[in-house]
Design a protein around this nucleic acid. Sequence first.
DNA 1: GCCAACGTTGGC
DNA 2: GCCAACGTTGGC
Length: 153
Amino acid sequence: MKYWLLKSEPDTYSFSDLASASSSGTIWDGVRNYQARNILRDEIKVGDYAFFYHSSCKEPGIAGLCMVTETGLTDPSSLDPASNYYDPKSSPDNPRWITINVVADRALKRVITLKELRQHEALSEMVLLNRGRLSVQPVSENEWDYILGLESS
DNA sequence: GCCAACGTTGGC
DNA sequence: GCCAACGTTGGC
């Protein structure tokens, strides 16, 4: 099992939105970056866990944990002409944007902020802190465990 | 296939 | 709202 970090703007879709979604969770739609798409399509597996990260907001940071329940899904927004994420170069026969379904696992006891993460030498190699713009990223097991260890501190 | 121009992300 | 970083586009 591997660990990941998924970014969302909480004004658009927050961790509490996922937590209050139906038991089937949500499709992680709208990713339009090839590196992130490749991770969604090729690397993330059912049963993997991810941090749910709030970006572009007052307090950027990790708000909760979620679990991957399905992979290999065509992003429905890419085929919807009414969507902001519509991509005319994608089609049902040859979908360009492949994604996953996730469910909420649990909220963290507190949001672990980006500012706090930056203060820990043990996390200095985190993708989040070095290639901040990537919206789907790997998290090492050591980083995962370390960050969960901060939760109660 | 280079690279300048342009667009987007996302912290601050 | 600014702007640095960086991904994408498109002319050549």
